[in-house]
Amino acid sequence: MSDDVLDQAAGWRGEGRKVAVATVVKTWGSSPRPVGSQLAVDAAGKFVGSVSGGCIEGAVIKEALDAIENGRPRLLDFGVTDEQAWDVGLACGGKVQVYVERLD
């Protein structure tokens, strides 16, 4: 299970690293990764896994680093809008909701 994101995250935490996990909790339309897909991030910004196949990872990692700092979980919405299209929108036109939490 070495490619399992939660195993990786738990392993990092076990080494004493600060870790946050992002999970896709809802999708609409043709979102690239199914509900339950996960991304783990450590305090240095190292990450494994995927919540969108690359479109929104940058924004999620930023929020994850913030969650590592202050411990507050958060629920993020991503979709394609005119403003977001060149920023952190999903190229494929879907919408996703991502939950980010710190491993205490």
């Binding site: 299970m1 939660l6 195993d7 738990a10 935490r13 996990v21 909790v25 979980p73 629920l75 939950y99 939490e101 710190r102 491993l103 205490d104």
Partner: peptide, 25 residues
């Protein structure tokens, strides 16, 4: 996620025991 939840979740998965993590978002 509390350490005890993570530990129990990891144990269940290692034991191949079906488990659901339920989170109030």
């Amino acid at each position: 996620m509390k350490p005890e939840i993570l530990a129990a979740l990891q144990k269940a998965r290692a034991d191949k025991r079906p488990v659901a993590l339920v989170t109030n978002l």
